[in-house]
Structures are given as structure tokens and as C-alpha cells.
Write a protein that binds this DNA or RNA. Structure first.
Lengths: 248, 248
DNA sequence: GACTGTATTTGATCGAGATCAAATGTCGAA
DNA sequence: TTCGACATTTGATCTCGATCAAATACAGTC
């Protein structure tokens, strides 16, 4: 399982407004300068499409702020989210000019973009960069595989609980908060986007959220703010092993 | 979408019994020699477990022959396959000593193993190697995302048709066969393993196979040998776009 | 060739989640 | 404050795939 807190090797880009997981953790200052030379920032509003599947994309990017989603759509409109990008996550594929998925800003998003072609050149000449990208991609693959278990075998209730604990965990690691028993966070997704994430309908998402509230596993302040009074109780609902699949 | 026929940059290892996709396509002979120095072959019989989730694994490997699966199991026994490794696919994660999934030989399997620690050293000093692994991992991530759409949104019939077309396609690319309208191949998985792949029960798999046979989409010779009289007709059952998601 | 264990098929029934429909909450603009 | 556009919740019903159960096919092995 990816260990996000370990993977977070943060550093400050020269003119980056906030600290984020740098694309390359071990770059020397001259490599950082080269990255700086090909980078720029772009902001997207919640709901805005960053790229459609099939579009040419002339940059790759690191998410600085906000949440973006990768979604696949079938001809008849059925939709499945296949990627959820939080701050420090990487967007785009080097050596491929067209995107394979719809990329959408779930909340307001700030991207740190790198022009794709020179970025590819940098990968060629900077060994650490491809090693770093390999690590990040392997983490993403692990996450995708956990997601596959969720989609293929979990009940609706387990799916919701798993989603909440994933968001809570990643939110906590971003905020570097200690693992208190109580946890509070904002949902970055609508019920519909949650349904697309979980392979459910939005009605089922809503019903199961209500059920978890009724059973005291979560509290809702407004529609989007979640309080988890007892993290253990939430974990028990996910269907996952108690140790979270971490082997010693 | 990963283009396997393009990705197949085959070369012959010094003493490799068959040609397989080399781990590094652009290695010069001295790097190949270093790979040769840390490699050995292992054979597993169908049904044998190659590694249990949590086991330490002191090698990474390339599948030379046969089919292996990665599977996750929940405490109550629900199982989901999360990876299917065919010849030329890579097994194991550099820089991680324990496996995260149960690895099982679906058929008799021959692995070309590389001792993990020296292999990691080789990654450090051979830029092309990590670039090659990055490409392969990104292909695998794309495959995982297509798989997620299947698990989350497709009907049982679409899942079966998709699985058959995936196996047919990969089988054809391995055999380098021209894209004839008719196609024949052997299923490398039992009905139960197919169910674990597709997030279904084995009864549903069996029923849908029978339905596809009844409707003339496939023919069965024995339990495992499949004939697809009209590839287009099978594709129409998958729910995927006609162009297979390839953007021009 | 009969026997045994396993893989697969087929049948009958059930239930979780989808679907269709309507009510309620919410927030910004006029 | 009221209106309108959404997001969300709740209700009633239906359906696909799961579950439980049994029959059949098949590959070894004695």
C-alpha cells in the first residue's frame, strides 16, 4: 500500500505559492532551475473541464491546490471515475500527447504545469526524475488496485465508508494533522461525483450516507462537512483488514 | 490506451529459452550482461501460489510463459483479481520487499527472475531502465483504469464480452497473428478465476458464457477453447466505443 | 471401464441496489 | 424576500446478479 506520508517529500519551488510534493525530490538546484524554466501556473474553477478525452495536452502538471478527477464515459452516458487527483498528485503522461480520460476540476484547482515536450527531454537527461515518476506511478497503481477491490466486491455501505476513510486519510496527511480519534473534513465531491467514484447511483450514495449518519458513524454539518467521532468505527465499516493492509 | 503491439520491443536474452519483451529495450550489451548476471529462471505449476500477500520477495521478474494473477482477498473470503500477467509482463515492485497481493500461477508459468537488490542498483545506474519501467507501469495503470470502468459500470454480459476480447487481443498480439475476422484462443482462466477478474460469481460467468454461445457470438470447443466467428459482433457486446478508445 | 474428485452448467428463489418519481433543502441573484 | 436553479433526500417498485441447490461433464487413476 502506498504510504503517502513517506512519499511526501516536500520542497518549495522557487515561485510556487504553496509547498507541494515536487516532481523530483532529489533534484539538484540546476535541475530545479530547468524545471522552473518550463513551468507555469493555471487555475480552473470547480466544475470546469481541464481536458476532454482525446484532446491534445501540451503540458503535464502537478496539482498544487484543489481536487481534479479523471473520468471515463460510455456511449450511453454511464460514467466511471478512474482517478482522483489531490494536491501533490501528478497529471498527464509523458510521451503521449492526447489524454485518455476527461479531466475535470471537482473544486477550484491550481495546477503547476510543465510544458510537455521539454519535460520529456528533462526525463531523458535526469535519471532521478524518471525514478521519481516511477515511484509515483507505482503508488497510483496500488491505489487503483485497492479501488478495483472496492468496485468489484464491496457493498454500497462499505464503499461509502471506504471512500470517507480514503478522503479523511489523505486530507489528514495533507494537513499533517496527528491521528486523533476524532476527524473532521470537507467532502471535495458532489453526491453524483461520489457515485461515479464508487460505481453506484447518487440515490444509493445519499441513502447510505443517511444510514451511516443514523447509525452514528458520521455526523453531517451541512451537506459537505463530515465529522467522524470514532475513526475505528468508520474503519470497521470499510471491510478492510484492521491493519489497513500494511505488512511489517 | 496502451498499444501492446507497439510496446512489444522484443529481444533475446543471452540464454533465455524464448523471446520475450526485455525489461530494458534500449540497453547496450554491457547492461544486458549485468541483467544476465542477476537473473535466473523459475517454473511454477498451474494453481501454485508464487507468493502470498505480505511475503518478502527477493526478486522481481518478467513473465516468459503462461499466465499469473494478482488477487486481493477480504477477511470474509471475497476475492478480487487486480492484475493479470501475461508473457512479457513485469512482476514485483522495486524498492519494496514485501508483496501486496497474492500471486498465483493460473497456468504453468515460467518466470525470468532478477534478484531484487542488485536490480534496484541497476535501476539507479541505468536511466533507460527506469524509463522503460515507467512506460510499462503507465501501460498497466491505463489497463487498470479500463478494468475499473468494467467493474463499476458494465453489465455481466458486457463484462464477459470485454474479458474475451481482452484475452483475444493480447493472445493475438503475442502470436503476432494478423487481425482476421475469425479468432480462436484458449481461456487461461477457470470460471472461478474469471469471476474474480470480473467481480461476478462463477454461476453468473457460466450463465453469460452460455448466453453468448446461444446467441452465436462465441463457439465453445471443450470448456476452454473459444472461437469468435465475428470479432465485430463480440466488440459490439463489450459496451466500448467502436474505435476501442484509440484517439487519432 | 468404473470410480472419484473437480469444474461447469442449469434451475429456483431472493435481495441489494437501480430506476422512476417527488419532496425538500440551499444558495445566489433580482 | 422571493424566485429559480441545483443538489440532496426520501419513497415505491423493479431487475439483475447473488445465493442456494442439484445435475452433468470431464480428467485422472486404479
Amino acid at each position: 500500500m502506498p504510504n503517502r506520508s513517506l512519499a511526501l517529500s516536500e520542497m518549495t519551488c522557487a515561485d510556487c505559492p504553496i509547498r507541494h510534493r515536487a516532481v523530483c525530490a532529489r533534484c539538484e538546484s540546476d535541475e530545479l532551475e530547468k524545471l522552473d524554466a518550463i513551468k507555469y501556473y493555471r487555475r480552473f474553477e470547480a466544475g470546469q473541464t481541464i481536458a476532454w478525452a482525446g484532446d491534445k495536452m501540451d503540458f503535464v502538471a502537478s496539482v498544487v491546490e484543489g481536487v481534479a478527477s479523471l473520468t471515463q464515459t460510455m456511449e450511453d452516458g454511464r460514467r466511471q471515475m478512474v482517478g482522483l487527483l489531490l494536491p501533490s498528485d501528478f497529471l498527464g503522461r509523458p510521451n503521449r500527447e492526447s489524454v485518455s480520460y476527461d479531466v475535470t476540476a471537482a473544486t477550484d484547482v491550481m495546477l503547476c504545469c510543465f510544458r510537455r515536450v521539454p519535460f520529456q527531454g528533462l526525463i531523458e537527461e535526469t535519471p532521478h526524475l524518471s525514478q521519481r515518476l516511477l515511484e509515483m506511478t507505482l503508488d497510483e497503481l496500488d491505489a487503483a488496485r485497492e479501488w478495483m477491490l472496492l468496485l468489484g466486491r464491496k457493498t454500497a455501505r462499505e464503499k461509502i465508508a471506504s471512500f470517507l476513510s480514503i478522503i479523511a486519510r489523505r486530507d489528514a496527511s495533507l494537513k499533517n494533522s496527528k491521528n486523533a480519534t476524532e476527524l473532521a473534513f470537507d467532502l471535495p465531491l458532489t453526491r453524483e461525483a461520489m457515485a461515479d467514484y464508487l460505481g453506484l447511483t447518487l440515490e444509493t450514495v445519499s441513502r447510505q450516507m443517511s444510514a451511516l449518519k443514523r447509525d452514528g458513524v458520521i455526523e453531517l454539518k451541512g451537506k459537505r462537512h463530515i465529522i467522524v467521532p470514532d475513526v475505528e468505527a468508520l474503519m470497521d465499516e470499510t471491510g478492510d483488514d484492521a491493519d489497513g493492509g500494511v505488512y511489517i
